[in-house]
């Protein structure tokens, strides 16, 4: 080997590297998917493949085409937020006219209870029932039309809907008080609750009817004899400053800690 000349072994290794390198580049060019990189670092064709997935739920607008009456009734009722397929199941095949069978008409209590069984975590105000207590022998649709579920008769008690509040109140010092003791409830509330919201007392004077120092516990407060209970008294002029009662005491569980 002469100095200044590239050594043989480097030429040999270099040749192999060149061969491997070039073939890898050529192979790579050949195998990269055609649409790769068109829209970003991915196969643009994949978007179309994903978009072509088969639709299962037709959407309630599709139901409108044939079942206008039911949809209209539903849309005017408390079930207006439901989609037809929430209860009747995926019906795209039915909507396109290709299904051999009609979508199911659920008749048991199970489906309704999926949403309306009492669960403490459900939002206050959402209508919930305790399965065992609420007409256990009847099917839901005997009293409630699923497309317009407002009951034809008023619920027996407030806890039918306001279970979460009733549950708290039942173990509180205010347990003996009926809801109507504090809330003025218009009869329409039982039929159209949200458009006839009961009045909530918020003045200090209202609580003072029982709890103000120097005021005798009423023997007949809106029909309830309260003298049997030990009612805590406070001087409303000094107690709590300018705060309203409910800012510290939750009326449905008025702990004084």
């Amino acid at each position: 080997m002469k100095s200044g000349k590239i050594p043989n072994q480097v030429l040999q290794v270099g040749f192999v590297f060149l061969l491997v390198g070039t073939s890898m580049i050529l192979v790579r060019q050949h195998f990269i998917p055609e649409s790769f990189g068109e829209l970003g670092h991915y196969r643009a064709d994949a978007v179309g493949v994903i978009a072509s997935h088969e639709i299962q739920f037709a959407g309630w607008q599709a139901c409108m085409e044939c079942h206008e009456d039911q949809v209209a009734a539903k849309n005017n009722s408390f079930h207006r937020t439901l989609s037809c397929e929430t209860c009747h199941g995926a019906a795209a095949e039915h909507a396109s006219g290709e299904a051999e069978e009609d979508p199911p008409l659920p008749t048991g209590r199970a489906l309704c209870l999926t949403c309306h069984r009492y669960l403490v975590s459900r939002p206050t105000g959402f209508p919930q029932i305790i399965e065992e207590l609420h007409e256990p022998a009847k099917l839901c649709h005997t009293c409630h039309d699923p497309h317009d579920p407002t009951p034809s008769e008023r619920p027996e008690s407030c806890s039918g809907c306001h279970a979460a509040i009733a549950r708290v109140k039942a173990v509180s010092h205010h347990a003996p008080l009926d809801c109507e003791v504090c809330h003025e409830v218009a009869p329409e509330h039982f039929l159209r609750p949200r458009s006839n919201i009961p009045r909530k007392p918020f003045e200090r004077a209202f609580c003072g009817n029982c709890h103000a120092a120097g005021v005798d516990t009423p023997a007949n407060f809106r029909g309830v004899d309260l003298t049997a209970f030990e009612v805590p008294k406070v001087d409303q002029d000094t107690h709590g400053g300018t705060l309203l009662c409910w800012q510290c005491h939750y009326q449905h569980s008025p702990e004084a800690r």
Partner: peptide, 14 residues
Amino acid sequence: LGSRDVSPGAVAFD
């Protein structure tokens, strides 16, 4: 790779 060169120069290069 068919290499044959074991001259002292080549080995030194190695």
